[in-house]
């Protein structure tokens, strides 16, 4: 978990199929980085809701790390997970070297991998 000396690129893997828009990542990030109202290190975007031709509903949320995100370098140096990963109420965020996360990405659909 702790960032190594390997110069590997790290990132976040998000299983957005189960993102519920609970705002936990947004607020956890604000508190960690000391951001003011209007500032975000990660922001949840919305697609939908709308009905597909089959009648099934399409409604997805996608947390997007912003340029203020530093992958919680201070927390990670202490041996913690990034605060969004730690607190995510659906438990759908993963932190690690992108190469490792890419393997996990192959496990199921509706996941995204962010590199930093």
């Amino acid at each position: 978990m702790q960032k190594g000396e390997d110069n590997a690129r790290y990132g976040l893997l998000i299983d957005y199929e189960y993102c519920t828009n609970c705002h936990t990542c947004e607020v956890a990030c604000k508190k960690e980085l000391g951001l003011k109202p209007g500032e975000y290190g990660i922001k949840v975007l919305e697609d939908g809701p709308r009905q597909n031709p089959s009648g099934k509903w399409e409604w997805s949320y996608l947390p997007v790390p912003t340029s203020l995100c530093n992958l919680c370098e201070k927390r990670v140096a202490e041996g913690r997970k990034p605060t969004c990963v730690h607190h995510c109420q659906s438990g759908i965020m993963y932190y690690g070297p992108v190469e490792e996360l890419a393997k996990k990405l192959a496990e199921k659909p509706k996941m995204v991998l962010y590199s930093k």
């Binding site: 609970c22 936990t24 956890a28 607190h87 995510c88 109420q89």
Partner: peptide
């Protein structure tokens, strides 16, 4: 404040209101 990973109830996660406790 952080969510307690050793609490079986919430297993580390926490909602925005408790995260905003301070």
């Amino acid at each position: 404040i952080e969510g307690d990973p050793n609490a079986p109830f919430n297993r580390g996660r926490l909602c925005l209101r408790c995260i905003n406790m301070i």
